[in-house]
Design a protein around this nucleic acid. Structure first.
Length: 586
RNA sequence: GCGCCCGUAGCUCAGCUGGAUAGAGUACUGCCCUCCGAAGGCAGGGGUCAGAGGUUCGAAUCCUCUCGGGCGCGCCA
């Protein structure tokens, strides 16, 4: 509908150029917006005001010229010039009510744009290091990334959801050693646990699993393990040096194969938990992309070679540096360390290049707000690779702060006092968690009110939307008991009976749905869908209270039921995008 | 110190490419179930869009500065 009117304006523009009223070289795509209030019609255009200057005519006069040249349309009932020079469009009832037919015919496809093969994107999100369970901070990125991916998919993008698994870093080594030390404890060895080790109870669980598979095969005495190690931080030494030495010792004692046992056990166990956790949260991925795989496949060397060819690398202090400072970053960055190992940043560059080489036009990254320093760095990398930095898009998700009984819930990773995503889901439920996480703009800090999220009351915005859906289902359930039927064909033929203000408002609300999806996709803004669903539910509840649907008049009843069913379709489709259930009863 | 994000009703927040009288929820007050689900609806008050300049037909929106809050600035991952 919107496109249709934009096309009418386009035609008018062509005539204006031909008639010499505006310069022929005017390059302008007319754009429509929804009116704020129905007093101003359904759509409004500011075209006349935008063109007034170049045409050298008052906006309202120009608006008349535009209107005079609009082709006739069965969709447009009337136009008017308003305010400083807006052109308001009033739709015909036929045009307004056509959305009901669309929604019923298209069902789950209503509001979905067919996939454009040329619009291939990757969305990378969560990507938490597999060193422990996901906590509530990851939850927002997960909910945002999953909802955004679904919305992009609905808007016609071909979306690949990816989780970048950091299975190659020092953190993973520390994790593997932590498991090994707990394993040794279980074997009966007395060994001091390092300051930097992973403290959680889940480390014991993994250690127990290894022991039940391997028995005492990887047992060494406490003396062999700790003899000659540099002192730990709490022993007036250096905790980093201590833990690094411990990693080396583990490798020496067990050999590569033995070390791998603990490393893989830790990785597989924790990653498995994360996968399960996310799946229960309705968050899925097409690809769990291994960082270690990048190195093995030569992708890192490939990317570094590309930077070298483009003349962006130099050697200093035995390391290889990327001249990022000349490409917009604050400073130059090391890509190959003095010890010959590539940096984490080198992996990032390689992963980005790899995404483009797999044929994705744009790579979207969902990061926590604390990663904003990455933007300049990665953009510089894109430039250094000779790629368009526009193809790399970083979306920062601000932090969520939990509130319980009006007070901030204190969290700290160090003390292990963080609330896990699993605990949150168990406390408030997946539906509420998914909704609350995305109901604010991603660049806005989020106050997550736990009490509100789990309250089964009118205050809770999730229930408000779900209730609208349950009510609709209830209406259809009641048909039989009242000895009535719903015939969609009769309803479709009788749509012109929907003339109440509430009905027109609801029609407008439903017809906004496809536009909301388009905007939400373009602006990477799932919260727009959440807000829209609230608005749609409001329109429905208002209608429900003002008018009876199950009336004796067969034509009116079926027309209303068609409208109500169209509402239901929009509710279900929107909730689906946000990963929230649409219960038939509650 | 440098950089990024934010500042809108008592509270939590919408406000898309600059548009018409700045909107929701919540809280507060008063109404509405012999009627399809009251987890609902209707009505009411509540604002220096942090502040000051600037850009223009028009600024909550764009630019500059100031104030206030959050976060980041490793040959860590």
């Amino acid at each position: 509908m919107k496109k249709h009117i934009e096309e009418l304006l386009n035609q008018s523009l062509l005539h204006l150029k031909r008639d010499g009223i505006i310069p022929a070289d005017t390059d302008l795509q007319p754009q429509l917006e929804r009116t704020r209030s129905s007093e101003h019609g359904d759509y409004a255009s500011n075209l006349a005001m935008v063109l007034a200057r170049s045409a050298g005519r008052p906006p309202r006069d120009l608006a008349q010229d535009i209107i005079d040249r609009l082709p006739p349309s069965r969709q447009v009932a009337s136009t008017e010039i308003a305010g400083p020079g807006f052109i308001n469009f009033f739709l015909t009832h036929l045009a307004l009510s056509s959305v009901v037919k669309d929604a019923l015919k298209q069902g789950s496809a209503f509001g979905r744009e067919p996939a454009h093969p040329e619009r291939r994107v990757t969305v990378e999100y969560v990507s938490a290091n597999p060193t422990g369970p996901l906590h509530v901070g990851h939850g927002r990125g997960a909910a945002y990334g999953a909802s955004l991916s679904a919305i992009l998919d609905a808007a016609g993008y071909e979306v690949q959801r990816e989780y970048y698994v950091n299975d190659n870093g020092r953190q993973m080594d520390i994790l593997a050693v932590s498991v090994w030390l707990r394993y040794l404890e279980l074997c009966g060895e007395k060994i001091r646990f390092p300051d930097n080790g992973y403290q959680g109870e889940y480390i014991f669980d993994i250690a127990r699993a290894v022991r039940s598979d391997s028995g005492d095969k990887w047992r060494f005495t406490g003396y062999d393990v700790t003899d000659g190690l540099p002192a730990d931080g709490s022993e007036d030494g250096d905790s980093e040096l201590h833990v690094d030495a411990l990693i080396r010792r583990a490798n020496e004692l067990m050999g590569k194969a033995g070390y791998r046992v603990f490393f893989d056990a830790a990785l597989n166990s924790i990653l498995g938990d994360i996968q399960e956790d996310l799946e229960e949260f309705g968050v899925v991925f097409d690809e769990w992309f291994s960082e270690a795989g990048l190195e093995e496949s030569g992708a890192i060397d490939h990317a570094i070679e590309r930077l070298r060819e483009n003349g962006h690398l130099y050697e200093k202090d035995g390391a290889t540096w990327f001249r990022a400072s000349e490409l917009g970053d604050e400073k130059d960055r090391v890509v190959i360390r003095e010890n010959g190992r590539t940096t984490y940043f080198a992996s990032d560059i390689a992963y980005f290049l790899n995404k483009l080489e797999r044929g994705f036009g744009t790579a979207l990254y969902v990061f926590g707000a604390d990663h904003h320093g990455y933007i300049a760095r990665l953009k510089a990398a894109a430039l250094g690779l000779g790629e368009d930095p526009e193809r790399l898009e970083i979306l920062l998700v601000q932090f969520a702060v939990l509130y319980r009984e009006g007070k901030k819930v204190q969290m700290s990773t160090r003390s292990g006092q963080f609330i896990t995503l699993r605990e949150l889901r168990e406390e408030v439920g997946t539906d509420a968690a998914r909704f609350f996480y995305v109901m604010r703009s991603h660049d806005q800090h989020l106050d997550f009110d736990l009490d509100l999220a789990k309250s089964h009351s009118n205050e809770n915005p999730v229930y408000y939307v779900q209730y609208a859906h349950a009510r609709i289902c209830s209406v259809f359930r009641n048909l039989e008991g009242m000895d009535m039927t719903w015939n969609a064909a009769i309803g479709e033929a009788a749509l012109e009976l929907l003339t109440e203000d509430r009905e027109l408002a609801l029609l407008r609300a439903i017809s906004r749905y496809p536009e909301v999806i388009e905007s939400a996709a373009r602006l990477r803004a799932p919260h727009m869908v959440a807000h829209y669903l609230g608005d749609l539910a409001t329109e429905f509840h208002g209608y429900y209270n003002a008018h009876q649907f199950l009336v004796d008049d067969e034509n009116l009843r079926n027309a209303r039921l068609n409208l109500v069913e169209a509402t239901r379709v929009a509710l279900v489709n929107g909730l689906e995008l946000l990963g929230i259930s649409a219960p038939e009863e509650m």
